[in-house]
Design a protein around this nucleic acid. Structure first.
Length: 274
DNA sequence: AGACGTACCTGACCGC
DNA sequence: TGCGGTCAGGTACGTC
């Protein structure tokens, strides 16, 4: 599921039910996801007091006791649900029992997600986080930055946006949607977009992410239900998954075009995006 | 260094 | 109904 807006929505929803609670029990129902769980993970979780929940790009960060941080990535198919105790289901890989009796479940059919554990002091240097680009919703992410970050890159603009070193948290959907809003062709060479277009793109990225978070936030209560229903942004997608259909307000006969870039589907309007 | 293909997994969907 | 093929929101690694 998860790009930045979904992880942020999850973070906010989980903070309500997790922060301040103690973990009574941590059940690891297998030894790995994308890679092995860190050593003694269950022991470190068990008994820990949960602090604030943070986010960096698509990584969810859960403070434990005074110095621990649980790092969690949802991969392609990861979900976290919270609710009353019930038997673990298929693909529920990690189940936490909190001191109010509720269960937090990490479910991930494809197992591209991961869990790791570090300390607050080491967090910024953690290999998973050290090379991430700026948070697009924080100050400093603008046309000047983007121009510099993309300088010299010959890869298509769309592919560059998926590079987490350029900007943290964009995935395939929102990269497509942001380019549509900025009216920029995904095929344009990344290193050659220029200051004005870069500023347009940075603003479009911010706008699409903020709207998606707002849409997710509106169904926040739903999200933390046991069924994991999530306020995804899909009803507002202008181009993603809409091959052959018109983009909003567009009269081009062809409709949204789908191409493959670096092995990923890209959706765009060839008339409005140049 | 940067760009590309491939691998990791399961599930949903489509056409036959 | 079943079967094979294709595709999927992400990242890491090897190779050129």
């Amino acid at each position: 599921m998860p790009e930045l807006p979904e992880v942020e929505t999850i973070r906010r929803g989980l903070a309500h039910v997790m922060s301040g609670r103690r973990i009574l029990r941590a059940e690891l129902r297998r030894a790995d996801l994308r890679r092995p769980f860190p050593p003694a993970l269950a022991e470190r979780l068990q008994g820990a007091r949960i602090g604030a929940l943070g986010r960096r790009g698509k990584y969810l960060l859960i403070e434990l006791d005074d110095d621990g941080i649980l790092i969690l990535h949802l991969g392609m198919s990861g979900r976290i649900t919270a609710g009353a105790a019930s038997p673990a289901g298929r693909h529920d890989h990690v189940v936490l029992t909190l001191d109010d009796g509720s269960h937090i479940r990490f479910n991930d059919p494809r197992r591209f997600g991961l869990l790791d554990y570090t300390s607050r002091a080491q967090l910024a240097r953690h290999p998973l986080l050290a090379d991430l680009g700026p948070e697009p919703l924080e100050p400093g992410f603008d046309g000047v930055y983007l121009t510099a970050a993309l300088a010299g890159r010959t890869t298509p603009l769309k592919s560059a946006l998926l590079d987490q070193r350029v900007v943290a948290g964009l995935g395939n959907i929102y990269a497509c949607e942001a380019l549509y809003r900025a009216r920029l062709s995904p095929r344009r060479r990344a290193g050659a977009i220029g200051r004005d277009r870069a500023a347009r793109l940075a603003a479009a990225i911010r706008a699409v992410l903020e709207e998606a978070i707002a849409a997710g936030g509106s169904s926040l209560r739903d999200y933390v239900r046991a069924d994991g229903g999530l306020g995804y942004f899909q009803h507002r997608w202008a181009v993603y998954g809409r091959e052959g259909m018109p983009c909003p307000g567009c009269d081009c006969a062809e409709g949204v075009r789908r191409i493959v870039q670096a092995g990923r589907s890209t959706f765009y309007c060839a008339k409005r995006q140049r």
